[in-house]
């Protein structure tokens, strides 16, 4: 009947390389925790998370539920984000690889599919129904 929730700062996850970040998330979720992070992944990273989840599915772990809210950034902040995307591209040309990206502003919830019964997403909010 108990469900554990872990709130993790994106600053902590940002320090990890992409692969380790996904492993960290999936290890927590496979242990039964619902994880909440103050950031959102890129679409590519989300797809990577789905792929990695599929590799780990077994009889006791059917997979995950994910939901995220992106903060709509405008004005100066969006300028900064675009600048950072630009920097990423330049770095890619200079060093021949894409540097580890950092999580963007927003919120993400990842939890075990066996506990999360339903997620209702709206443009600016979402609600989660969980049951152990």
């Amino acid at each position: 009947m108990k469900i554990k929730m872990d709130f993790v700062s994106s600053a902590m996850l940002d320090k990890k390389p992409k692969k380790k970040r996904i492993n960290f998330i999936l290890n927590k979720v496979k242990d039964g925790s619902i994880l909440v992070v103050d950031g959102v992944m890129t679409a590519e990273e989300e797809m990577e998370l789905i792929r990695e989840t599929m590799r780990r599915v077994d009889d006791g772990f059917p997979g995950i539920e994910v939901c995220s809210l992106k903060k709509q950034v405008r004005g100066f902040q969006s300028f900064l984000e675009r600048l950072s995307d630009q920097r990423t591209r330049i770095q890619k040309v200079l060093i021949g690889r894409i540097p580890e990206t950092s999580l963007k502003t927003g919120i993400t919830l990842v939890g075990p599919a066996r506990y999360i019964k339903k997620i209702k997403k709206n443009p600016n909010s979402f609600s989660v129904l969980a049951e152990a």
Binding site: A43, E44, E46, M47, I50
Partner: peptide, 15 residues
């Protein structure tokens, strides 16, 4: 329609 699968799929295709 606002499921994570749809959002992730469209985001990837856009990227």
């Amino acid at each position: 329609p606002l499921t994570q699968v749809n959002i992730t799929l469209l985001g990837n295709l856009e990227a």
